[in-house]
Nucleic acid binder design. Structure first.
Lengths: 360, 360
DNA sequence: CTGAAAGCGCTAACAG
DNA sequence: CTGTTAGCGCTTTCAG
C-alpha cells in the first residue's frame, strides 16, 4: 500500500497546483498494475477477471475516486446507449408536470437511467430547441409534451431508431406512441355532472385553443351540451386562458353579467384556481356550480370543496416510461395511443343546484 | 442539388434496411465537399469561414438532419464543458422542489445548459448514488439537496474543480456554497406570531430529526418559547413526521388529549396539510391556531386561511444557479452560505386567540 | 484470464 | 480561409 501512495503522489499535477486532474481508466490501470482493458472489465462488471485482480482494481479506483465517463464509453459502444432519457413537460413547477416527472423517474431510476428534464412553457420554438438539445446529448429516448403544430421535424430522428413517447397531448405529423388523458370523455362527464344537477346555462373556460387538449375538452363539453338538448346559445365558451389571472378576470366578467351562467366548467387546473378565487371574491361560491378538469391541491379543504375530473399523471408517466423502455430494449409492438381514464371526484362545488329564476 | 441527392442516397445503409444511421461531421463534410474541420467551424459558429462555405455546410447539415454530439466534442475540448448541470431536489413532485427546479432551469436555459434532475426522497444512499450518476455524466456543476450525515465524499470531486452549490440544507464535512432559507429566524417568527396572539401552549410538529432544516426549525421554535418565558413543559415537540398521514395522526392524537395545545406550529408543508385536515376533521379549525413553515397552494382559499412563514424557493434556486454559473466561469470569490429570508403571511389560522380556560 | 491496437465523433494544434 | 493530424476516454476486436 505504501508503494501505491508514492504512485498516487507522483501522479498528481505539479506541486503547488491545487487542482488534481480527473483520473482515467489508464490512471487506475497504472496504479493497479494491470492493463486498461482489465479495468474496463472490472468497472463494468464483465466476467473473466480473477477475484484478486478485481480487488486490486477496485482498490485503485477507490483511492483515485475514479468515476467512469458514461459518454466516452458510449462513443465506441455498439449499442450507443447513454442511459439518459429526455423529458419535456409543460412546466416543472406545475403539479401535473411534477407528478408525471416523478412517475417517469420512478420507472427509470432503478435501471440506471438519468432524466434530463425541461419545461415547454407552451412555446413552439422552445419545444424544438429543447428537443434538439436532448438529441445533441444523445438521449436513449424521449418523453415529450408538445405544442408545435406538427412534430414532423422528428421524423428523421424516429427513422434513425430513437424511441419517443408523447404524453398529455398527441403528436401530429408523426406516427408514434402516446399516452394521454381521455380528454373528451372527461370533459363530457364533467358537463354531464352539471347537467344532472339541473344546470342548463353552463360556461366552459379553457386554455389556448392552439393546445390540442384544450380543443378536445371543449369538444367533450359541446358533445354533452348537445346530448342534453341545450341550445348552443346557452353554452358560453371562453378560450385562451393560459394563467390564473386571465381566468380570474374572465370569471369576474361572467359573474358581473346581468345573466351569468349557473355553472362553470373550467378545463385546466390554473383556470380552476382562478375561477375559485373569482367566485369567492364575488361571494358566489355557494350558488354557482363549478367542476374543474385536473385535480388541484387542497381542493377538499376549500369551502365548498372543489369538484373535479381528476387526471392520473402518475399513470400517464408510468405507462409512457414503460413503453419507452420497452422500445429502447428493441420491442417491436405496433404504435399505440393510450387513453388514461379520468375520475370525477365530487366535493361540493359541482353539486350546487341552480337557483330558480323568476323568468327568462 | 441533384448530385447531393445521389450522394445522400448512396450514403444510406443497405437497401431494405429502414434504419438510417446517424450522420456525423464526416458525412456532412463529404456531402458539402469540404473538410471536417470546416464543418466543425460552421456548426460551432467559429469565425473565418466564407459565407458561401457556411451556406454549403448548413445545407448539407439540414439535408442530413445533423445534430452535433455534445459529449464527443467535450472529450477533446480543453475546457471539458458538457453544458449540463446536475440538480438533486427533495422530490420533483413536491411544489417546493418544483419551484426550485423551475428557477434553476430559468437561470441556465438561455446559456444552453441542460438540467439532469433527480429526487432525493430523503434517502442517504440514494443521494450518493444519484450524485455519482451525475458525475459519471460529467456535469459541469452540481446543485444539491442532501440528507447524508456528511458530504465529505464530494471532497475529491471538489478538489478536482467541479463547482457545487448546496440548496435548502447546508452541507457537512465539506466547505462549499449553500443557499438556504433562514430556518431559525423563520421558525422564531412563526412562534412569535402565535405568542403575540396570546398562546402559551404551543406544539411544534416537524420532519425527521435527521434533516438539518427540521432541527433548525425546532431550534427557532424553542428560542422563541424561551424568550417568551414559557416553561418548556408547555412546549410539545413531535418529530419524525415525514408525510401527511403521519402528521394527520399526530395532530389527531394531540387534539384528543384532555389538554390539547391552543396552537400548532407545523414545520414543513406536508405536515401543515396533515394538520389542516386533522383540525377540520375534529372541527377545531376555528379555535386552535396554526402557523405552517413553507407556503402551500390554495392556503388562502381554505377556511380559515392558513397562516404560513413562506419560503422563497424561486430565490433559492435562482441564487444557487447564479452562483454555480459564476463558479463554472471560474469566479474565485470566497465560499458563502446565503440565507434567504422567509415571509410571514397572515391568513387567519395563525391569528386565532386561545379560548379562555377556566383553570390550570 | 489478460492486454495491445484500432477507432467512436469530435476539437486542438498546427500547416498551408 | 481551409484542411490534416493527433488524441480525448473509452470499448471493440483480436491475439495471446
Amino acid at each position: 500500500v505504501q508503494d501505491w501512495e508514492t504512485i498516487v503522489t507522483s501522479m498528481s499535477n505539479e506541486p503547488g497546483v491545487a487542482r488534481r486532474s480527473r483520473p482515467t481508466m489508464k490512471d487506475v490501470a497504472t496504479l493497479a498494475g494491470v492493463g486498461i482493458k482489465t479495468v474496463s472489465r472490472v468497472i463494468n462488471g464483465e466476467p473473466n477477471v480473477s477475484d484478486a485482480t478485481i480487488d486490486r482494481v477496485m482498490r485503485a479506483a477507490n483511492i483515485l475516486d475514479y468515476q467512469l465517463d458514461v459518454y466516452a464509453g458510449n462513443l465506441r459502444r455498439t449499442d450507443r446507449r447513454t442511459q439518459t432519457i429526455g423529458l419535456l413537460v409543460g412546466n416543472v413547477a406545475n403539479p401535473f408536470s411534477g407528478a408525471l416527472h416523478r412517475a417517469v423517474e420512478d420507472a427509470t431510476h432503478d435501471l440506471g437511467y438519468a432524466v434530463i428534464s425541461a419545461s415547454l412553457h407552451d412555446d413552439s420554438e422552445r419545444e424544438q430547441r429543447l428537443v434538439r438539445e436532448f438529441l445533441r446529448r444523445r438521449v436513449d429516448g424521449l418523453v415529450l409534451t408538445t405544442i408545435s403544430r406538427s412534430q414532423a421535424y422528428l421524423l428523421a430522428e424516429q427513422e434513425r431508431g430513437t424511441p419517443m413517447v408523447f404524453v398529455d397531448r398527441e403528436p401530429r405529423g408523426i406516427d408514434a406512441d402516446s399516452v394521454v388523458s381521455a380528454n373528451v370523455a372527461g370533459a363530457s362527464s364533467a358537463t354531464a355532472h352539471l347537467v344532472a344537477h339541473g344546470h342548463r346555462s353552463i360556461a366552459c373556460l379553457g386554455d389556448r385553443n392552439e393546445i390540442s387538449t384544450a380543443r378536445l375538452r371543449v369538444r367533450g363539453f359541446l358533445d354533452e351540451i348537445g346530448r342534453a338538448g341545450i341550445p348552443s346559445s346557452e353554452a358560453h365558451i371562453v378560450a385562451d386562458l393560459d394563467d390564473e389571472a386571465k381566468s380570474y378576470a374572465a370569471v369576474i366578467t361572467l359573474l358581473d353579467h346581468p345573466h351569468p351562467p349557473t355553472a362553470l366548467f373550467t378545463a385546466q387546473n390554473l383556470v380552476t384556481i382562478g375561477a375559485v378565487r373569482a367566485l369567492r371574491d364575488r361571494g358566489r361560491e355557494h350558488d354557482i356550480a363549478l367542476v374543474g378538469f385536473d385535480d388541484i391541491a387542497l381542493a377538499d379543504l376549500v369551502v365548498p370543496g372543489v369538484t373535479v375530473v381528476a387526471q392520473d399523471p402518475e399513470q400517464i408517466g408510468r405507462r409512457a416510461a414503460e413503453r419507452l423502455l420497452a422500445r429502447i430494449d428493441g420491442a417491436q409492438f405496433p404504435v399505440e395511443s393510450i387513453h388514461v381514464p379520468t375520475t370525477l371526484i365530487a366535493r361540493g362545488s359541482g353539486e350546487i343546484r341552480p337557483a330558480h329564476r323568476s323568468g327568462g
